[in-house]
Design a protein around this nucleic acid. Sequence first.
DNA 1: AAAATATGAGAAAGCGTTTTCCCAAAAAGG
DNA 2: CCTTTTTGGGAAAACGCTTTCTCATATTTT
Lengths: 335, 335
Amino acid sequence: MVKIQDVAERAGTSISTVSKALNGSYTISPETTARIKSIADEMGYRPNARAQTFARKSTRSVVFLAKLGKDTAFESPHLFEILTGAEAALREKKYALSLQNCTAKNVCTHAHDIKMSKSADGLLIHASVVTRELALLLTREEIPHIIIGKPDFTSSLCWIDNDNRLSGTLAAKRLKSLGHKKIAVLAGHEDDQISEYRLEGIQSELAHSTHIQIYRGASTIEDGAQMAHALLTAPRRATAVICANNFLAVGCLRAFRQNNIRVPDDISLITFDEYPFAKFTDPPLTTISIDVFDLGTQAGKLLVSKIKKPGFHVQSHSTLPVLVARASDAMINMT
Amino acid sequence: MVKIQDVAERAGTSISTVSKALNGSYTISPETTARIKSIADEMGYRPNARAQTFARKSTRSVVFLAKLGKDTAFESPHLFEILTGAEAALREKKYALSLQNCTAKNVCTHAHDIKMSKSADGLLIHASVVTRELALLLTREEIPHIIIGKPDFTSSLCWIDNDNRLSGTLAAKRLKSLGHKKIAVLAGHEDDQISEYRLEGIQSELAHSTHIQIYRGASTIEDGAQMAHALLTAPRRATAVICANNFLAVGCLRAFRQNNIRVPDDISLITFDEYPFAKFTDPPLTTISIDVFDLGTQAGKLLVSKIKKPGFHVQSHSTLPVLVARASDAMINMT
DNA sequence: AAAATATGAGAAAGCGTTTTCCCAAAAAGG
DNA sequence: CCTTTTTGGGAAAACGCTTTCTCATATTTT
């Protein structure tokens, strides 16, 4: 294994000179720098990352903390899309990304361990595992971090998220503009943050003018279908339905088909996000979506900024939702 | 920051004793070990991971190499399910897992870099990026690795995979046992390894006794529907269809519905894998599936074994597929 | 009781960089 | 031409552990 010493000898310089040349320090002349670089190259010298990490007092790596388990990849593809986006951004900045499964219960232990053992420079944390205790820890220990998703309590954390509240508002606005007055909402359970914010946005937009029926269930195809059935048998049937996410929408679509309810002729449907099957459903779904990959890259970039300049403080940062109009919604049918 | 020195002073021993006690070396008496441990605990001592990594000449980390991009999380949830499984296994063995996006073109650079810079102890590599050149590199440099998926050429690599060929055979056997004689196969393109192995298994089982029609297209819902249309208009229409993956099956199902072909009454359908929506389709899909998460954990465990004892050599290792019978296939309709 | 062995603990040598000083030589200024 | 400043490069001190060697002391063996 060729080490810095070898390069130095071959170049007839000291090891500090080699280190400086390779790391682009201005205190070495351009000529020597070039010469050393070419020698190092020729010798196939790669600095030992373990030694660098130790000497630099920085790992140039961050860890991604989220709740992972069997089927998470299927149930929460967003999580991994974010991860992928983050990896891309971090790689560009020469940071490594490692993955750690944790829960809201043990996230503090994880974070504390990483901080104490100095095994990473920063944390990317999925909002679903963020607790008040963690918030305290992060600020007290001044751990560079970005929370992905909006933590559900006011705090001094740095977070970045799709603006789910605005998404809800957009969906509601859309249906209003199509003339709908009786709108049903298929929402997730109360502990489903994303669904909750969307619902808030919907309600704030619809509050006065419209009759809203809210149904709740798990964010699954099954429950979506069940809620759709309930909706169809309700006294004053809605003319449009907003599904808090794609799974609910798929279930809803299925229930409508079973009951020979045509979409969008008999009822309009609008949902959020952009799962790959969203454009393949029958009819293709109108959704309020965002670029999840981009959310990840932004989180990565932001985190690196925070690591590099501890003064740098982004309190929060939201990405804007946009309407992707397809064929599942339509002007209200007056007949 | 409390360091080993501080603990040693407080315990009235040398730092080597502390190190040994904490790392469970037998050369320290049980009493001293216990005493030191409790003092370290009390002082909140955490060894500096950067220093440990450096001193030990090992990072206790591995990197996962795969092709990642926008929508990969949606299109290949399996990849992330494997990743999650690997994380779980590695965590148990105290190894960290980091993620690196790469392509078949640059995978060698990545692997070489990691080896040279000693930034990880081993590699988990998705088969889709494995090239002959990489195989050479891995064996020449003796890089501990596990390939996930079967590399498409004979080599001395260590790989682990679901036995896709056997899965194909199982699917074919199932349809044969249900009395089908004319079977259509909706396969992916020739470069889709998984689909290819499945097809092989199907063909080897069906070769003599049965009439097979093979259709090819991309592994998407769209192409699945298209192939299904082709199948329906073919001269001697098949009584059963095997779809090389879930996406094709969904497309197929849709096309059948549009043409008022009932499943399984008019035609039987069987597919592979177990996407979460497989049990929610109409009718629920009969599939040949495996435990992808488990594939990941096995890969992780195997890799750690290879890292710890370089002599340890598993050439290959396959997980067994199993039939999950649902409602999309049935006895051939004789009428 | 002397010799051989086993045991517990410490001294010190790494591990391979980065980085902080420091100094000579060269350049600039008076 | 002498003094001051700049510039390029080297010496050496970290960085905080692990691990090998060595050595007393305690234990066993002869």
